[in-house]
């Protein structure tokens, strides 16, 4: 029973990591119907920005929540800027071309970021400085909970609600939904579509940046290819929850985290990645819209 409960706690914390990345993924898709494959790599850049800014400000000498917020701020601003550039340079010129072109470009951007990262940062894993150190692990009997992971879980849930709020309750959100409905009609209604699309990208990338710092803190090993697997897993989570749906992404991610945890804990670790992609295949066959997805009627 103890082992089982511990597995649940571990699975929740693993799932919340996927959730953090999946939120940005699903938001960009929801608004632009674009699967931004470079999202996982923006997440990697977030981790590196967090690492270098903590070194620059010597944040690890004074580990506190304040230091964590400074690193988070740097990474979010940096990633928002990167997201802006990616959209402007890679996706905007293709706005009018078929969707498949943009999709392939996204794969290209992803590879570009991964391998320029290797050139820029070196391919060897770096140590992420301990900018926030929880004093003790919470434990109930032999059950151990790392406060850091609870912070990740809480952050994921808070960001999810903030996103919901932005999308459904603000002017920006209304404009985003309008753009998502139709670029042309939205611009006829006086919405600056380019600006809205830019801000969507910046918001999504900032989320990825925050995820990068938090993941770096929990698993203190950062390297240029660290975004590949988590990025794919987050994509699976988003599809599982119904891509485009913010709540769905969080639920999908936590489901995937728990599923992986139990698979590895009770069976074999070799199937860890196979499970995620197995789920992806099954979902695409039996319920392509995911858990929370609604069917969309598309004119062809």
């Amino acid at each position: 029973m103890l082992e089982f409960t511990q597995h649940i706690i571990n699975g929740l914390s693993l799932g919340s990591i996927y959730a953090l990345i999946a939120l940005g993924y699903t938001m960009v898709f929801g608004i632009l119907q674009l699967i931004n494959f470079a999202h996982g790599d923006v997440f990697m850049l977030g981790a590196f920005i967090g690492m270098y800014s903590s070194r620059y400000f010597a944040l690890d000498r004074n580990p506190s929540l304040g230091s964590l917020f400074i690193a988070l701020g740097c990474a979010m601003i940096g990633c928002a800027a990167i997201g802006f550039c990616i959209e402007k340079l890679a996706y905007r010129p293709l706005r009018k071309s078929p969707r498949i072109n943009i999709l392939i470009t996204a794969v290209g951007v992803s590879l570009f970021l991964e391998f320029s990262g290797q050139l820029l940062f070196g391919a060897d894993p770096k140590f992420f400085p301990e900018i926030y150190k929880p004093s003790v692990n919470w434990s109930i009997g032999e059950l151990v909970i790392n406060p850091l992971q609870m912070i990740v879980l809480a952050t994921a849930l808070i960001l999810m609600m903030v996103l919901q709020f932005i999308i459904f309750k603000t002017r920006l959100g209304r404009a985003m939904r309008a753009v998502s409905f139709s670029h042309e009609y939205a611009s006829l209604m006086g919405i600056a579509t380019d600006k809205i699309i830019s801000s969507t990208f910046m918001l999504g990338s900032a989320l990825a940046g925050a995820a990068g710092v938090l993941v770096g803190l929990v698993y203190p090993k950062v390297e240029p290819l660290m975004g590949v697997m988590p990025g794919l897993k987050a994509f699976v989570s988003a599809v599982l929850g119904g891509i485009g749906n913010v709540t769905g992404a969080a639920v999908g991610a936590i489901t995937l985290g728990l599923a992986e945890e139990f698979l590895v804990g009770y069976w074999a670790s070799t199937y860890r990645d196979a499970l995620a992609f197995g789920i992806l295949i099954l979902i695409l066959i039996f319920k392509p819209t995911g858990i929370f997805g609604v069917e969309r009627i598309e004119k062809v």
Binding site: Q6, H7, N10, G11, L14, E261, F262, G265, S269, R272
Partner: peptide
């Protein structure tokens, strides 16, 4: 891999 908690929980 970066997460080894499930294996370690089983070992514990």
């Amino acid at each position: 891999d970066i997460d080894f908690k499930s294996q370690l929980t089983a070992i514990r």
